[in-house]
């Protein structure tokens, strides 16, 4: 079971400054564990963000994005009370989505 994302959005003159922290190992496939074996790759491939149902941001990621991916972006025309929904899917087919209501 994946951990909840940490989503923050600060509204400044109608622009939502969004920051999302996705807790994920983002294994590259190059790392060797304590037992000396290669850890298979396991990383978030896709991120989709909607605000009040409208697509406002998307990402396609590789193993070159750091562990616990942190994304910041800015959405114009945001209003208090609107729900920001962030969803990811990873290379093992796991998915997760979390929401944040803009204050």
């Amino acid at each position: 079971m994946s951990q909840a994302m940490r989503i923050r959005a600060r509204l400044d003159k109608g622009v939502a400054h969004v920051q999302v922290l996705m807790l994920h190992p983002m294994e590259t496939g190059f790392r060797v564990d304590e037992a000396g074996s290669l850890v298979p790759p396991h990383y978030i491939t896709d991120v989709a963000v909607t605000l009040a149902g409208r697509t406002v941001f998307g990402a396609r990621m590789s193993i070159a994005v750091s562990r616990d991916p942190l994304l910041s972006f800015r959405v114009t025309g945001a209003l208090p009370g609107q729900t920001l929904r962030v969803a990811w899917a990873d290379s093992k087919g796991q998915t997760r989505s979390d929401e944040f209501v803009i204050a």
């Binding site: 396609r60 070159a64 994005v65 942190l70």
Partner: peptide, 25 residues
């Protein structure tokens, strides 16, 4: 990097042309 393309971000109209993240090198 062994795979040079790190990430692709899609910016629909209404979203500022801005992104910040952390990558591996």
């Amino acid at each position: 990097n062994p795979q040079p393309l790190a990430a692709r971000f899609t910016i629909p109209p209404g979203t500022e042309a801005f992104v910040a993240t952390r990558i591996r090198m």
